[in-house]
Design a protein around this nucleic acid. Structure first.
Lengths: 146, 146
DNA sequence: TGAAATCCGACTTAATAGGTAGGAATTAAT
DNA sequence: ATTAATTCCTACCTATTAAGTCGGATTTCA
């Protein structure tokens, strides 16, 4: 039931870009260093985020990536679904119900629907801006402890 | 983000046993036929359910499996976690936090925790008895339509 | 012109999912 | 006693996927 690294790393990329929002493009190399991840792998992931219209790229030296929309207008759900596909615990509840129309008495399907609803409620209610705020909250707390 | 067949089929097994609760053991062969699944595969799954104390087996002819507890005392969460392990979207929130103690500023971790909470709230609030009731509700509805 | 970046597509490699196969042990019914 | 139905156990199989790596082309700033 684990999310793949696509979704997990993808969210980390977007979070770093959100921290940097408004300060020009950030090279992927820097994202990779901050999060200790492979740059070449992140390249693949961010290609999807770009295609989905979440980030814009600036090529060449001093280039990089930046968010197209404001952090408060991008939900965690949108990011994760872009990279993972529908957040469903079973294929039979992924919008297109292929052959599960034989679901005369498919009671388990009701369970998958409720789980999916639960997950989506959570991820759609959190934005990148919430994450940025969490970061500063954590930071202040740590400084207060010194 | 899909649940494996272990959890999905395992729940179907338990659901069939719940429908049959109080009427003696049900052979796995019958479960497999009703749900159109491979009997030999289900054998592996139910071994775990037995070890976890959710079902009891009666060997030999006329044998089979039955629930140990009443359907209303078995939650969907317990079943799925038995077969899938912790329902966490990331390893770093699976009870034992191995190396993620470098989580100085791990804001994404907060997200995984909320997702996990959301999932567990759903599955722990539903029992096998709820599923049985859903079945009869669906059935009555279908008969009413005739 | 050179360094810093994005872009692109093919390749690799280990692990996992989702089973199958074969047979031993147990028990009820005949 | 024998047979048929069942659980139990261990090993094996095979296709897919996850999680990257690699090499090079292209773009752009300084």
């Amino acid at each position: 039931m684990i999310l793949s690294t696509k979704g997990r790393y993808g969210l980390k990329i977007m979070y770093e870009l959100a921290l940097n929002y408004g300060e020009g493009p950030m090279p992927l190399k820097e994202v990779a260093q901050r999060q200790q991840l492979s740059e070449t792998y992140l390249e693949q992931l961010i290609a999807h985020l770009k295609k989905a219209g979440l980030v814009r790229s600036i090529r060449g030296a001093q280039g990089g990536y930046e968010l197209i929309r404001k952090p408060e207008e991008i939900s965690v759900g949108e990011i994760i679904r872009t990279l993972e596909g529908p957040l469903a615990p079973s294929e039979c509840v992924m919008d297109n119900e292929p052959e599960c129309t034989k679901a005369e008495n498919c009671v388990t399907r009701l369970i998958w629907e409720k789980i999916m609803e639960g997950i989506n409620n959570v991820v759609d209610s959190i934005t990148l801006n919430d994450m940025v705020n969490d970061y500063y909250k954590l930071k202040r707390k740590k400084e207060g402890e010194k």
